Amino acid sequence: MKILTNIVVLLLLSAPLFAQDDDIQQEQDPQVKQKIQAARVAYITDQLGLTPGEAEKFWPVYREFSEKRQQLLKQYRQAKRNPDPSKSTEQNDKDLVEMGLKVKQQEVDLEKEYSDKLLKVISAQKLRSLPDAEKRFRQMILDQIQRRQGMQERREKMRDRQQQRLQQRNN
């Protein structure tokens, strides 16, 4: 299983950079999204120690939960981006605070509902480990992005230095 995880992570390393912003994510290459999703599935399956039978039952339920959670968060982000022009800034901010609290409550309700469903498929210990596995995967992706950005910056600096040297030689 660790070999599979390593292979998927290597596939992920070869994928182009992707951004967290939803607008940009929707424009990215579908193959990149698929690679990231496959890496996520492999990583979480490995981290939770899911058996093939558990994984087969777990992932459809968990995908459904994730999609519903993303829909909730998307509604809130859209409200943040598009304040009501007929209201004052203060009123829009108050509305956003209220909406944020409602979304959090809906998210908790959703987690309760799906934790019951997931407990029928996996043990409580594995379910308890799920948020940590997700956090580690997200952190791994963020670390990867930072490394790639750092490498890109170093390449650009090297190109700039080479161009400066060429210009100095030509002068």
Score class of each variant (00 low, 15 high):
residue 155 R to Y: 08
residue 128 R to V: 15
residue 122 I to H: 06
residue 113 E to V: 09
residue 133 A to V: 01
residue 107 E to Y: 07
residue 122 I to L: 06
residue 155 R to L: 05
residue 114 Y to W: 11
residue 150 G to I: 12
residue 147 R to C: 06
residue 97 V to P: 04
residue 133 A to I: 03
residue 102 K to V: 01
residue 115 S to D: 13
residue 133 A to G: 03
residue 143 D to R: 13
residue 103 V to A: 03
residue 153 E to Q: 15
residue 149 Q to Y: 14
residue 118 L to A: 09
residue 114 Y to S: 07
residue 121 V to H: 12
residue 138 R to I: 14
residue 153 E to M: 14
residue 140 M to R: 10
residue 93 D to S: 12
residue 123 S to I: 04
residue 138 R to E: 11
residue 119 L to K: 14
residue 127 L to K: 00
residue 145 I to D: 07
residue 93 D to A: 11
residue 119 L to S: 15
residue 109 D to V: 09
residue 141 I to Y: 10
residue 101 L to R: 05
residue 117 K to A: 14
residue 141 I to P: 02
residue 99 M to R: 13
residue 127 L to P: 00
residue 94 K to Y: 13
residue 123 S to T: 10
residue 128 R to A: 15
residue 119 L to Y: 15
residue 120 K to Q: 15
residue 147 R to S: 12
residue 146 Q to K: 11
residue 127 L to W: 02
residue 125 Q to A: 13
residue 137 F to P: 00
residue 121 V to E: 04
residue 150 G to H: 05
residue 97 V to Q: 13
residue 147 R to M: 05
residue 123 S to W: 07
residue 96 L to S: 00
residue 143 D to L: 10
residue 152 Q to M: 11
residue 137 F to K: 00
residue 151 M to W: 03
residue 135 K to C: 04
residue 137 F to I: 00
residue 127 L to I: 00
residue 131 P to D: 02
residue 105 Q to C: 10
residue 92 N to G: 02
residue 140 M to Y: 07
residue 118 L to W: 14
residue 133 A to M: 01
residue 128 R to L: 12
residue 96 L to P: 02
residue 139 Q to L: 12
residue 141 I to G: 02
residue 98 E to A: 03
residue 121 V to I: 15
residue 148 R to G: 13
residue 128 R to I: 09
residue 124 A to M: 09
residue 109 D to P: 04
residue 120 K to D: 15
residue 139 Q to A: 11
residue 138 R to F: 12
residue 137 F to R: 00
residue 152 Q to V: 12
residue 92 N to D: 00
residue 110 L to E: 03
residue 122 I to T: 06
residue 150 G to D: 12
residue 131 P to G: 00
residue 111 E to H: 05
residue 121 V to P: 13
residue 140 M to I: 10
residue 129 S to R: 15
residue 146 Q to M: 12
residue 109 D to F: 03
residue 135 K to Q: 08
residue 149 Q to T: 15
residue 154 R to W: 14
residue 150 G to P: 04
residue 99 M to L: 14
residue 115 S to C: 14
residue 135 K to E: 11
residue 98 E to W: 01
residue 136 R to H: 13
residue 92 N to F: 05
residue 96 L to Q: 02
residue 97 V to M: 13
residue 150 G to Y: 08
residue 102 K to S: 06
residue 110 L to D: 06
residue 111 E to Q: 03
residue 152 Q to Y: 09
residue 134 E to C: 02
residue 94 K to L: 08
residue 146 Q to F: 10
residue 98 E to L: 09
residue 139 Q to T: 06
residue 105 Q to G: 05
residue 143 D to H: 13
residue 121 V to F: 10
residue 109 D to M: 11
residue 94 K to H: 12
residue 111 E to T: 07
residue 109 D to E: 10
residue 114 Y to Q: 03
residue 97 V to C: 05
residue 151 M to S: 04
residue 153 E to S: 13
residue 127 L to T: 01
residue 123 S to M: 06
residue 101 L to V: 05
residue 141 I to R: 04
residue 146 Q to I: 08
residue 150 G to E: 06
residue 103 V to F: 07
residue 137 F to D: 00
residue 121 V to A: 11
residue 114 Y to G: 09
residue 115 S to R: 14
residue 136 R to G: 12
residue 98 E to Y: 02
residue 154 R to N: 13
residue 141 I to T: 06
residue 126 K to M: 04
residue 147 R to W: 08
